[in-house]
């Protein structure tokens, strides 16, 4: 492999996002929500990168930070697509505009994400006009029609308003809007969570086809591991702002190493009624990021936690391209 292919599209080093809260005490520093803490990820060009975790684990904040839509408190985020490269922690206004064209976001709720007062054509054309990508109305229309066709919307649809569409169709409109500026990197934040199962498959297949066709990289944020398993090449699992496990999808699902990943997998409801009671139940809930527990962040819910887990935070260890942050993963794999 030559070096150019190996260069990640997005790379983070020790990325942290902290939000200060309003002080409740008269003296002392205000409490801080550590939404993302010390995250290192590399997203290869043209890959489908999954990010999973419970609500409150920091997935959305991480996704936003990669788009420079959340304040980066510490660490680095770099973008390099071979044509341009940016350091997001220190980016000029002009470069940021260029970055916005190359990095886009698809929102979760297709009912809230589309303006009810704009036609579908105008919704999709808006990024082109705002960013000044196209020079004339004809060119804009041409681009809109091309991307609409890719997202399986027909010309008739372009004249209508969003209220006339079902959830699946609306999500296809949001996808078309995100892709019209021809981005290289797209963050899809829970993009199928609001859809029915019957429609979900359709949108997933569309994302996958588009990714292959346009060669773009997706950061696919989801709480649904079975969806991630089907579309992503690479998966990262987050817990309380930290990455606890990252691996190629198949490896992660065949041999999960972190007890949290195992519990998440086990909690997916099985289609076999006879499996009732076999799932491994995780007690309690994710702790508050203002007051994370000491040591391993998962220790409060982990049934394998021992003394070291309560005092020392585990580091990410890499073995066979599979990262895990757990003190006991080796003994747990043997057991």
């Amino acid at each position: 492999m030559n070096d150019r292919i190996k260069t990640p599209l997005i790379a983070t080093k020790d990325l942290s996002v902290h939000y200060p809260l309003r002080s409740t005490k008269l003296f002392g520093p205000p409490p801080v929500v550590r939404a993302v803490e010390g995250v290192n990820i590399n997203i290869a060009p043209g890959s489908f990168f999954g990010l999973v975790g419970e609500s409150g684990s920091g997935k959305t904040t991480l996704g936003r930070a990669l788009l420079k839509a959340a304040p980066i408190t510490r660490g680095e985020v770099t973008y390099n697509d071979g044509e341009v490269n940016f350091d997001l922690t220190d980016i000029e206004k002009q470069d940021l505009q260029e970055y916005r064209r190359r990095a886009q976001l698809i929102f979760q709720d297709p009912y809230a994400a589309l303006s009810p007062r704009m036609t579908v054509r105008d919704i999709i054309a808006e990024p082109l006009e705002v960013m000044g990508i196209t020079k004339s109305r004809e060119e804009t229309d041409q681009r809109v029609r091309e991307i609409a066709a890719k997202c399986r919307l027909n010309l008739e649809h372009l004249r209508r308003f969003p209220h006339a569409f079902s959830g699946g169709q609306r999500q296809r409109i949001s996808i078309a809007r995100a892709l019209v500026s021809n981005p290289k990197f797209v963050v899809a934040d829970e993009s199928v969570a609001a859809l029915d199962v019957s429609i979900q498959a359709d949108v997933l297949n569309l994302l996958k086809d588009i990714q292959k066709e346009m060669g773009l990289a997706f950061l696919f944020i989801s709480h649904d591991l079975s969806v991630v398993a089907h579309v992503c090449d690479y998966v990262a699992v987050m817990y309380l702002g930290r990455l606890v496990e990252t691996a190629p999808t198949r490896q992660l699902f065949a041999a999960p190493r972190h007890p949290y990943t195992k519990a998440l997998l086990s909690a997916i409801p099985s289609l076999d009624p006879d499996d009732y009671g076999k799932a491994e139940k995780l007690e309690g809930e994710i702790p508050s990021p203002t007051n994370p527990p000491p040591g391993c962040k998962f220790q409060t819910r982990c049934r394998f936690a021992v003394d070291i887990c309560r005092t020392q935070e585990p580091k990410l260890e890499t073995e066979e391209g599979h990262d895990v942050a757990c003190h006991r993963w080796r003994d747990l794999m043997e057991a």
Binding site: L204, S226, V227, H230, L265
Partner: peptide, 16 residues
């Protein structure tokens, strides 16, 4: 059929 199944990751997802 539309449900993503974990025991067969190669199975295509079929929408209704």
């Amino acid at each position: 059929a539309a449900l993503p199944k974990l025991d067969d990751l190669d199975a295509p997802l079929v929408a209704v």
